[in-house]
């Protein structure tokens, strides 16, 4: 039984495993026999050793990074969902707020770094702020689109059933109807927020995955840099995977395409 499952797994993932293995072999050979300079390209084996050596600091750095990331995303959701909802539901709010959003939105999040430092100092707050700036707009805009796209017939059905106040309609009809769109926005925001993380932490002076990556670069320990790159990539992937699982199983179970 277990053997059969192993075979089935290999059949499904076999090609992927082979291509990854080949990549690792090429990397190792290239580094050891062609480039021969671990500053330019550390070997795979050296990176594995670094990962092992860094086994104690990485969890702490991960926690610090999660703190920055979590605060940034939480505030972005806390502001982005209500603002997007109000803009999507009330035309007048859309006309008032939209120009402001469209003015600020094209500014790259990293351009806010100087002001993040001035406003928050070299604290966890400034790193969180950069992630917040990167995350709020996809959440806001997707929430807006979701609310605006609430099927008219559902709003009418709710109204004739006695749900007539705007707040009730927003909570009981527009929000659940917009939830797939909101979830998609949060997912994009999490991706962007994670990408901003390294830059947001580089200028700090505490710790965190991005900070450490830069720290080891300054020490010219490039094997450690790659170790942190791998961890950043892996966690970014896992975050996305976990969110998707959560959203699909808990929030959006009613959607046919997902359940089937």
């Amino acid at each position: 039984m277990a053997k059969n499952r192993l075979i089935a797994y290999l059949q499904k993932r076999g090609l992927g495993i082979i291509s990854l293995t080949i990549l690792i072999i090429i990397w190792q050979l290239l580094s050891v026999f062609v480039i021969k300079d671990f500053f330019i390209l550390p070997s795979f084996s050296a990176v594995v050793v670094s990962l092992y050596r860094l086994g104690r600091e990485i969890p702490i750095d991960t926690l610090i990074s999660f703190l920055h990331f979590g605060m940034g995303i939480a505030v972005a959701m806390g502001l982005g969902v209500p603002i997007g909802a109000i803009m999507g539901w009330f035309r007048i709010a859309d006309r008032i707020i939209d120009p402001v959003v469209e003015l600020i939105r094209p500014i790259p999040p990293l351009a806010w770094i100087p002001f993040a430092i001035i406003w928050f100092g070299l604290t966890h707050g400034s790193a969180s702020f950069i992630i917040f700036v990167g995350a709020i707009f996809p959440i806001l805009i997707n929430t807006y689109a979701g609310f605006r796209g609430t099927p008219k017939v559902l709003v009418e059905a709710a109204r004739v059933l006695g749900c007539t106040k705007n707040l009730d309609l927003m909570r009981s009809v527009a929000l659940p109807s917009a939830l797939p769109s909101v979830a998609a926005g949060v997912r994009i925001a999490m991706g962007i927020g994670w990408m901003c993380l390294v830059a947001a932490e580089i200028f700090g002076r505490s710790s965190g995955l991005g900070y450490k990556l830069w720290h080891y670069y300054q020490l010219h320990q490039m094997d450690n840099v790659i170790a942190y790159m791998i961890i950043l990539g892996l966690i970014g992937y896992l975050l996305d995977w976990c969110f998707r699982r959560f959203a699909e199983e808990r929030l959006l179970r009613w959607r046919e395409q997902i359940v089937a």
């Binding site: 559902l154 059905a157 059933l161």
Partner: peptide, 18 residues
């Protein structure tokens, strides 16, 4: 709209998340 009248739509208009 009021509690004394109910409306049925051609397109059913059920709330798909409920």
């Amino acid at each position: 709209p009021g509690p004394e009248k109910g409306l049925i739509f051609q397109e059913f208009a059920l709330f798909p998340w409920r």
